[in-house]
């Protein structure tokens, strides 16, 4: 029956998409880090910013069933199921993306993007849950602040190196708030 639940959530499609993202991330990492004209430290930044974003976008549709109201009227302990779903997703995304090249910044961005998608699913529903995180990461990446000031470390966390300690705080806040509200309330129903 767990198999039915995973299918109801579209998990097989998510897993397949995650594999594709991992392969693309590994290929991009390999290509970028072997270009002589790129700074080897900065070369992986696109992968570190984009791969967790894509993984989180794939996660969005799995955060609700085809009929949330119908499912919520059942005795299943949904808060526990949601907690397990997010935990498995974070571990799955983190582990697979690590195969493309281990990085603390990749882990940080995974937490941040998952938190934003989960929070958006709870507040605006899964159909549009991809939009805020996509817009935010694209905006940050497009403006690509080379600045190393404290504020840039906070608001531009997706493109900061993991050694930028302040970049972890907004991520932890987004992860805690986003996953917390999703676990408590579930995805918003229409």
């Amino acid at each position: 029956m767990i198999r039915l639940h995973l299918r109801a959530r579209g998990v097989p499609l998510f897993a397949l998409g995650l594999l594709v993202v991992t392969v693309l991330a590994a290929a991009a990492t390999q290509w970028l880090t072997t270009r002589p004209y790129f700074d080897p430290v900065q070369a992986r930044t696109p992968v570190i910013a984009v791969a967790p974003l894509l993984a989180a976008l794939l996660l969005g549709p799995t955060l609700a069933g085809a009929d949330e109201l119908l499912e919520r009227g059942t005795p299943t302990p949904w808060q526990l199921i949601r907690t397990g779903h997010l935990a498995a997703a974070v571990i799955g995304i983190g582990t697979l993306l690590a195969l493309a090249g281990r990085s603390d910044a990749l882990a940080r961005n995974t937490l941040g993007c998952v938190g934003l998608v989960a929070g958006a699913a709870a507040l605006i529903g899964v159909r549009l849950a991809w939009l805020p995180v996509f817009a935010y990461v694209c905006a940050v990446y497009a403006s690509a602040p080379a600045l190393d000031d404290r504020w840039a470390q906070i608001w531009a966390w997706p493109v900061q190196p993991s050694t930028a300690h302040l970049s972890w705080w907004p991520v932890l806040a987004a992860f805690t708030a986003g996953t917390g509200v999703y676990i408590l309330r579930g995805a918003r129903t229409t």
Binding site: M1, L4, R7, A8, A66, L69, E71, P75
Partner: peptide
């Protein structure tokens, strides 16, 4: 419910089985 979402790839049996499990 008045209108309900379902899982298009589920068979009818799987759909009902799934809700039996959720219950």
């Amino acid at each position: 419910p008045q209108s309900f979402g379902f899982y298009p790839r589920f068979t009818v049996r799987e759909f009902v089985e799934y809700f039996a499990w959720l219950k």
